[in-house]
Design a protein around this nucleic acid. Structure first.
Length: 812
RNA sequence: GCCGGGGUGGUGAAAUCGGUAAACACAGGGGACUUAAAAUCCCCCGGGCUUCGGCCCUUGCGGGUUCAAUUCCCGCCCUCGGCACCA
């Protein structure tokens, strides 16, 4: 008998798959595919280190799903590509002094080699590389569709700026107000940037969450991120020194319009346009100084919540429209310009932030909500935000807060100084990056015509190879130094003009790649409509929850817009999304600094890809991740060896009835668990089954072992192919609906094991016929020595019988 | 602070429409086979007590509901991930 040699089997089948085109499709095959199943996984960023275990874990879990669908007879399209633009590649390239245009291709090559080695069912004929001009040509095309539809606009926005690195920093690169690399204090700068108007779609992005089948945690993350809140927008009239209205009104947004009677001051954000006009002449120096300081702070420090509140009085006043009283106007950086109207009515009695601020600056705190047991004069030790009744609130005094929001809003809008309003936390999507390594934004700036779209026929706007791509003090992209590149003529008036020198965000690259995959061989269009119709939306998308918000939200948004513009006929890109867990080592996230990074190549070398895949799927629930322990791989390794030995030595003949029952039970369980991504328990069930088949050293007949070979195929595809061939089948196990069926009549047990308890404590276990009468089961249970001992001399109060599970005697 | 996971043997974990807690596997121990080793097969493996029949305790902690709670309810603690003054 020949033994299992993983490397030989794996090389053989990887060669055969490639030669036969087992996993690749031609254009005609994609057009005509029957029962198509688009199995998508999040494409990787091809780092210089190569694939890490986390990647392999995610891809294997997704590949298992695709292979299972294929064994069920679906035509499964499972593409793989590379998300290779962006700041990570660029910083790494700068660090090692290699140009990203040289670095990325070699990383991609290495990734491809590793990906082939783990035995994924990837269609390499339909790969994408976001840095390839043939791909980003269409990323630019998408930008143009947004631009033409009025969904892309240029406006000033603050960014983090490190004066030492001379670069724009992302929020996560600012640690404690300092640059993560050089510890220089970070400043804020205002730069004109391109935005996509995702907030126009906020409500739809939220509503659709109700009818897509996604992991619950992901849905919740999206919901929170969109952050819909209902409230009201109120106007507070500004008054002059004599108390007369100036005609200017401060718009505030509040979710608690019912507490307006308790608004004892108003706060403007430092960036608010009314700051200047409401400030009293004598208060200008401190107010301007405060605004100046606030604008210099980096964006992260600006939003820190644990610092003590700062602010400055403007000396100006406005009228609380509910009480008619004059209240002061302050400026404070705890009010953010980007949310609501950039101004708030402060209700210190019932908002913790306002309370804190009022204490700090000795502003009046008024109670307008009383909890049960409190009255209008009960002093407030802290802001009260709970339920209760309105007090000190004019005609509304006495009303329950549960109804008061609506009632006050109605009153306010009747009075004409406000209206109900819905707000979203979601901001417009800033897609500009003042960086080099990304697709140039396809816009030409012309003195006369303003920003003009590059004609689609002129795409792609190729990113030029510039050797000096280091960012500098200008705060604009390194492309702004490539004069021969950016100088051009206006597509509309032919005057001298200048190209946009910002590149776009990588989330734009990854926002539509799944649409490109099946059409990746078309040069003349981003996607073919017939193929797109046949394959999209994606059936199952598997990826990490770290992308629960941004990537998934942006790709939903792009899909929605493409639908509205008539390019596609669906608006949600992924029917099913499942988040996988994180793989950790020694109870901690893998990281170089901890020295617990698992390098996959030597493991595959030693045990083979099939064992590695099976182990990764076995070590914990796929949705939750697990702890990688090097020794644990012995389990699946031994299991696959035993499965091999059992298969190659299997004889002909009738299956043993007990073994056959176990096999059918196993088919049922695995068929149940695989589509639900219950991989670890499915593998355990197969191990258990093999243990029964081999128990006492018995050898199997083929009918007993063959279903197991097919069921292990998603996990150990190479080995399954080899054994399938040795069983005498033609071609690949994955060509055809070869998944085994279980026979319900062969699953049932004739005897049931029943637990016998006395007062809930286990006293015996009995075996009774499955269809035994209740009276007989109870009689058998009562007759057990150890049961009889515990119930004699006692009152029997109740007997509980759960058929097939237990009998419980309640005595006392 | 808020949102979302999660806390079960020496270890990774299973079992959550309430019904025998610890399946499967790793590590460990014992045995069979072998000249030997590997492989394979069999047995033990949460803690304590035991007259070897069993008994008691045990799913982060404290309460509760129930004949019965890892599972449901209330109040805590710890931990991981995400968000962070969102008015």
């Amino acid at each position: 008998m020949d033994g299992y040699v993983p490397s030989a089997v794996e090389q053989k089948w990887q060669r055969l798959w490639e030669a036969r085109g087992t996993n690749t499709y031609t254009r005609e095959e994609l057009e005509n595919a029957e029962d198509p199943f688009y199995n998508l996984m999040m494409f990787p960023y091809p780092s210089a280190e190569g694939l890490h275990v986390g990647n392999i874990y995610a891809f294997t879990g997704a590949d298992v799903h695709g292979r299972y669908q294929r064994l069920r007879g679906k035509t499964v399209f499972e593409p793989m590509g590379f998300d290779a633009f962006g700041i990570h590649s660029e910083n790494f390239a700068l660090k090692i002094g290699t140009h990203p245009m040289d670095l990325i291709p070699s990383n991609v090559k290495n990734f491809t080699r590793q990906l082939r080695r783990i035995g994924g069912m990837f269609d390499w004929e339909h790969s994408v590389d976001t840095t390839d001009p043939s791909y980003y040509k269409w990323t630019q095309w998408i930008f143009l569709q947004f631009f033409k539809a009025g969904l892309a606009e240029r406006k000033e926005a603050p960014v983090n700026w490190c004066p030492s690195c001379m670069t724009v920093l992302a929020n996560e690169q600012v640690i404690g107000g300092e640059c993560e690399r050089c510890a220089t204090p970070v400043e804020q700068r205002r730069i004109a940037q391109w935005f996509f108007r995702i907030t126009d779609y906020a409500q739809r992005l939220l509503d659709n969450l109700d009818h897509i089948d996604w992991s619950d945690t992901t849905l919740k993350a999206q919901k929170n991120w969109i952050g819909r809140s209902t409230g009201a927008q109120l106007h507070f009239p500004v008054v002059n020194k004599d108390g007369a209205e100036t005609g200017t009104k401060i718009e505030v947004y509040t979710t608690r319009p019912d507490t307006v009677f308790g608004a004892t001051y108003v706060v403007l954000s430092p960036e608010h346009p009314l700051v200047e006009s409401v400030t009293d002449a004598r208060r200008r120096p401190p107010v301007y100084a405060y605004v100046d300081t606030a604008s210099k702070k980096d964006l992260v420090a600006r939003q820190k919540t644990d610092k003590t509140k700062t602010g400055v009085s403007t000396g100006g006043f406005c009228r609380n429209p509910a009480t008619g009283e004059l209240i002061p106007i302050w400026v404070a950086d705890y009010v953010l310009m980007d949310y609501g109207t950039g101004a708030i009515m402060a209700v210190p009695g019932h908002d913790t932030r306002d309370f804190e601020f009022a204490e700090q600056f000795d502003l009046p705190i008024l109670r307008v909500v009383a909890a049960a047991g409190d009255n209008a004069d009960t002093p407030l030790e802290e802001a009260y935000v709970g339920p209760g009744r309105l007090v000190n609130s004019g005609d509304f005094t006495g009303m329950d807060v549960a109804e008061s929001v609506e009632a006050v809003t109605d009153w306010v809008s009747g009075q004409g100084w406000g209206d109900g309003k819905i707000n979203f936390r979601l901001h417009d999507w800033c897609i500009s990056r003042q960086r080099y390594w990304g697709p140039p934004i396809p816009i030409v700036h012309c003195e006369a015509c303003g920003p003009v779209a590059v004609p689609e026929a002129d795409l792609p706007v190729v990113l030029p190879r510039v050797e000096d791509f280091k960012p500098d003090d200008s705060g604009v992209s390194p492309l702004a130094r490539a004069e021969e590149w950016y100088r051009t003529t206006c597509p509309e008036c032919s005057a001298e003009a200048r190209r946009e020198t910002d590149v776009s965000d990588t989330f734009l690259d990854s926002g539509w790649y799944f649409i490109r995959y099946p059409s990746s061989d078309f040069d003349d269009k981003p996607f073919d409509s017939a193929i797109t119709k046949n394959w999209l939306p994606v059936n199952t998308y598997i990826g990490g929850n770290e992308h629960a918000v941004l990537h998934l939200l942006y790709s939903r948004f792009i899909t929605m817009v493409l639908k509205d513009l008539g390019h596609i006929d669906f608006e949600e890109p992924y029917d099913v999304f499942r988040a996988h867990g994180l793989i950790i080592a020694d109870g901690a996230k893998m990281s170089k600094s901890k020295g617990n990074v698992i390098v996959p190549d030597p493991i595959i070398e030693e045990f083979g890809a099939d064992t590695f895949r099976t182990y990764l799927m076995f070590l914990g629930p796929f949705g939750e991740g697990g702890d990688y322990r090097p020794q644990g791989i012995q389990g699946p390794f031994g299991f696959l060896h035993r499965l091999w030995d059992t298969s190659v030595s299997a004889g002909q003949g009738e299956p043993d009835p007990d073994v056959e029952r176990k096999v059918h039970q196993t088919i049922r369980q695995v068929t149940d668990q695989l589509p639900a991504l219950g991989y670890n328990t499915a593998i355990a069930a197969m191990m258990e089954c093999l243990n029964v088949i081999r128990s006492g050293g018995r050898s199997a007949v083929r009918a007993e072992i063959e279903p197991l070979v097919v069921m292990i195929a998603p996990f150990a595809p190479h080995m399954a192919e080899e054994l399938w061939e040795r069983f005498g089948h033609e071609g690949s196990v994955f060509d055809g609906a070869n998944w085994p069926e279980f026979d319900a009549s062969k699953v049932v047990e004739s005897m049931a094991k029943v637990a016998v308890q006395v007062n809930g404590k286990l006293r015996a276990t009995i075996s009774v016929p499955k269809d035994a009468l209740e009276a007989d089961v109870i009689a058998t249970a009562r007759a057990e020595d150890n049961v009889a001992r515990h119930i004699e001399d006692k009152d029997e109060r109740r007997v509980i019988h759960v058929p097939g599970r237990l009998v419980n005697f309640v005595v006392g």
